[in-house]
Design a protein around this nucleic acid. Structure first.
Lengths: 183, 183
DNA sequence: GTCTATAATAGGATAGAC
DNA sequence: GTCTATCCTATTATAGAC
């Protein structure tokens, strides 16, 4: 039971931080080697497909995080306020209160093979939120519209907060999103 | 009067499209050479500082665009609706109705030296919008808050629209932003 | 699983002719 | 201002020992 954290998972956690911050092209294998303390060959042992493999692993990690921290909490029992607050709380943590970029947005740049995974993650997020609204009395089209705007607002606030080097826009966005979802 | 477009300006226009799509790290000099039809030495003739110089030129271009197409139209005479609509119309064009990324957001990735210019551009945008609101009867703190949220929403909608490969979220965001600014 | 060493290529940048 | 040729470094990726 005293097993250490499987190296691969620890590496994925590091990769997550690197890719979200610098995007796919902005991360080099040498960077990863330095950040993880693992030699290049070790990295290729864990990710035989190289950098593309690393990106895929990180996006898969993000997908699982989304299921556990957003989709499930939104679907679980409770009032709309309780469900929405669970999501917002998880997002606040994920994004470091507005100081850390969204991996999905960062992976969207360029010709990236990741685009399909990003698309399905964003779609899943919007749908899960819309479903929670429908569950609590909002019409389906209205729920989709509000959910899309909510996700947009959060993504945009992360950009503005990071550009201005000020967490306030993100805090403000969370409050604004909450109000418009509970309205 | 029959002067051709100065090559440098034409190159900057191309660079704008490349950087907004792929970010700083995602664009190589070879890419630029291919896209513009100019050899590398020609590029270095126009941009002695290399790629960093290209990025700076593009951000300067963006700054001028913002002054001409957003700041000035927002400051010019007219009702709040007229001013806001001028800005939204310019943005709709710039962003191709939601299909083209924001250069500022794309240049935000990584350790980029561009961060200062991105910051001042976003700050300028928010301030110009806030000023138009104050001019038309909104209190200063409320104007800043609404403006920040408006810019966030537009930036976020661009991400969601591109992720989902669907312009609808952007259209929806423009409408939502308009309503909340005119409210 | 991890390391050292190395190959192969792409990327940024310059020299010098025209 | 643009081209061809070239340099140097960084980058991706692999080989093979331990």
């Amino acid at each position: 039971m005293s097993e250490a954290i499987p190296p691969r998972d620890a590496v994925v956690a590091q990769l997550f931080e690197m890719f979200r911050r610098s995007g796919f092209e902005g991360v080099s294998i040498s960077d990863v080697s330095e950040a993880t303390g693992l030699g290049k060959s070790s990295l290729y042992h864990h990710f035989p497909g190289g950098k593309a493999d690393m990106a895929a692993a990180v996006l898969e990690f993000a997908r699982m995080w989304l299921e556990a921290e957003v989709v499930a909490p939104l679907a679980a029992e409770g009032s709309r306020a309780v469900r929405v607050d669970r999501m917002l709380s998880a997002l606040d943590t994920l994004y470091g209160g507005g100081s850390k970029p969204c991996l999905l947005a960062s992976m969207l740049l360029g010709d990236n093979a990741s685009k399909r995974m990003v698309k399905s993650a964003i779609a899943r997020w919007v749908s899960a939120l819309a479903e929670a609204l429908v569950d609590t009395g909002v019409s389906a089209p209205e729920a989709r519209a509000r959910s899309t705007i909510a996700v947009s607002q959060i993504e945009g606030a992360l950009i503005v907060a990071r550009a201005l080097d000020d967490k306030a826009p993100f805090r403000q966005a969370l409050a604004s999103v909450r109000a418009s979802l509970l309205k």
